[in-house]
């Protein structure tokens, strides 16, 4: 999961490895793995109702869910940036007691089943959850609201940002920041003019992954935020419900999400797809 920080040490090595002929014992399972990953995607492409595609994707219901998905994932990204960037910096630069625990907390949502995340969110932020009372006193009720969908998306997506950024921060030597400090730069100035520019590529890729994960969030959303068109029914929820009534429309919307996900990967090609074009 950690993106190659700086990417430099392994690079020469990688060129060497690419020229090596793979042994059959590795090639066979490797091809199997690649085919296994490709078949479902090919299935979506093969069953996409191309003539009806435009009509299905421009239907008011899909447009509404798409708009909501963009709104929710956009907010999730903003919130993740606002609190996730400082968290990544803290994890990379500051030694504090319980750091391992905090890092585990960050990693946990990445491996947690999303429905478990949804149940946990209900128990934490629901009306009868740990913080439900205080939140209600402030006039905030998260379940069944768009804000709740954002909370669910942040919970599952922010780790992707934090982990990639922390990896990148670990990859740059603190001497740059120390040099800036010796020249009189304050900490915020150092971050603004030295650290952030150096990790910008990783920050961008972490943000893109975070956004894509938020866009695709399903389990925690339907469990915690419910399903109401225009309020919490995002595209993945719509795909799930459409599949029961209109499988061909569900396939069209799936294709849309697939294209968005592929676009994110292409945008990140330098970092995640190696040099291969």
């Amino acid at each position: 999961m950690t993106p190659a920080p700086g990417g430099v040490p392994g690079r020469a090595d990688r060129h060497h490895r690419r020229r090596t002929r793979p042994p059959a014992a590795l090639a066979l399972p490797a091809v199997l793995a690649a085919v296994f990953l490709a078949v479902p995607l090919a299935g979506v492409l093969a069953h996409t109702p191309w003539p009806d595609l435009a009509g299905q994707l421009s239907s008011p219901a899909v447009a509404q869910a798409l708009g909501l998905s963009l709104l929710v994932s956009g907010w999730a990204l903003l919130v993740s940036l606002a609190v996730g960037v400082p968290l990544a910096w803290l994890l990379a630069r500051v030694d504090f007691p319980g750091k391992a625990l905090v890092r585990a907390l960050v990693l946990l949502p990445m491996v947690l089943p999303p429905t478990v995340a949804g149940t946990a969110l209900l128990r934490g932020f629901g009306r009868n959850g740990l913080l439900g009372g205080p939140l209600e006193a402030l006039g905030v009720t998260l379940p069944f609201s768009t804000a709740g969908a954002v909370v669910a998306a942040v919970f599952v997506a922010m780790p992707f940002l934090v982990i990639s950024l922390e990896g990148a921060l670990n990859g740059i030597h603190p001497r740059y920041e120390e040099a800036a400090a010796t020249m009189g730069a304050t900490l915020p100035q150092t971050l603004r003019y030295v650290t952030l520019p150096m990790v910008m590529p990783s920050l961008a890729s972490g943000a893109a992954l975070c956004w894509a994960r938020a866009l695709g969030e399903f389990g925690a959303t339907i469990t915690f935020a419910g399903n109401l068109p225009g309020v919490t029914q995002t595209l993945p929820l719509q795909v799930y419900l459409l599949l029961q009534r209109d499988p061909s429309a569900a396939t069209s919307v799936s294709l849309l999400l697939l294209v968005v996900a592929a676009a994110v990967l292409v945008a990140l090609r330098g970092r995640w797809l190696g040099h291969a074009r």
Partner: peptide, 26 residues
Amino acid sequence: VLPAPSAARPRARLATALRAFPVLLS
């Protein structure tokens, strides 16, 4: 400010291990 552990090292070790055991892997 300080710790800058190389994240590349565990990756390299893993890669070596994987290359050493293609039979096991398959």
